[in-house]
Design a protein around this nucleic acid. Sequence first.
DNA 1: CCCGGCGTTAATGCAC
DNA 2: GTGCATTAACGCCGGG
Lengths: 97, 97, 97, 97
Amino acid sequence: MSDTETAEDLAGIGHNSDEPRKELAVDRLRSLVERIERLEQEKKDLGTDVKDIYAEAKSAGFDTKVLRQLIAIRRKEPDDVEEQETLLDLYRRALGM
Amino acid sequence: MSDTETAEDLAGIGHNSDEPRKELAVDRLRSLVERIERLEQEKKDLGTDVKDIYAEAKSAGFDTKVLRQLIAIRRKEPDDVEEQETLLDLYRRALGM
Amino acid sequence: MSDTETAEDLAGIGHNSDEPRKELAVDRLRSLVERIERLEQEKKDLGTDVKDIYAEAKSAGFDTKVLRQLIAIRRKEPDDVEEQETLLDLYRRALGM
Amino acid sequence: MSDTETAEDLAGIGHNSDEPRKELAVDRLRSLVERIERLEQEKKDLGTDVKDIYAEAKSAGFDTKVLRQLIAIRRKEPDDVEEQETLLDLYRRALGM
DNA sequence: CCCGGCGTTAATGCAC
DNA sequence: GTGCATTAACGCCGGG
């Protein structure tokens, strides 16, 4: 039941808080949560930056809807290229040739 | 606060259960849940059927991984076609031409 | 006749289509693909039905987000539900929430 | 120099590339696209970092599924959290769960 | 048998 | 408020 040892550490919060291991588990959890939330905040900020650029593009006269499509296509184009190249091969392998 | 009227109906459960409207809300909720769960069960069953076919394909000597790719490509190909057709137009509009 | 174009594509892969075994593989593959795509289409249709019910629930005054949570809980095993809720509460208390 | 191929594509759209205004639009568009794609790449990298932390949490014995729920709850406004939990409990009681 | 990766599907958030 | 694009969660699959 090594899976649950940390869970059991946490389960003891408030009862045996003088045990070092449980304290450590709490600190560890807090640290993990903080790091994750920090990164997610950065992601959100970057999202804001992207939004600003679209606003800038719009005031420069570009159609943002089209611009978004353009970005989206460029994002998945690389994959499509290799897919296209291997498509015939795919059929051959599907047929066990 | 029309948003919350049903919530309030439900909130009364167990206290004023002799009021018809609250009873109806409960019945309505139960009905909705049952219908959704029924459909989800059917979806799950279909998923099992699909799995069985892949198993059948495998024992017939086909590479299921490749077969899955094949299905996936066929699924999104129609979209790609129209994307390709409008790509140049997209660039032109993005440039405000 | 868009149904048959892929079949023709497959038939065209091998240049020696007079070989019986390859023909059989082609037919078999086509059959498998058609059966899978049929089932997946049915799944998709059921998904649409589910979506419609949620829309209906919404116009009846239910909170669809909470309704989805409810369905998700019912989908899990009762033991798992309790276990997860306990653990979540544990984590929340660990962070003083 | 795969970076510049799209720029060349764009430059090639107009046949009258000697027109100053169109050139400027091309440059402007290229700049916007590059800036957006740069930011989106950074977002993607942060997403990878988050994933890594969840992996780390898992190997430290935490339940990542519950951990994600915890993060999600903290992301919402406290009032909304309580409201949703109340409503969910309501629905559960309505169905006798 | 468990685990990590992947593809699909649901859910959130954004733009109109 | 609605539809859509993105993002996160879920489940399945093959490998160790």
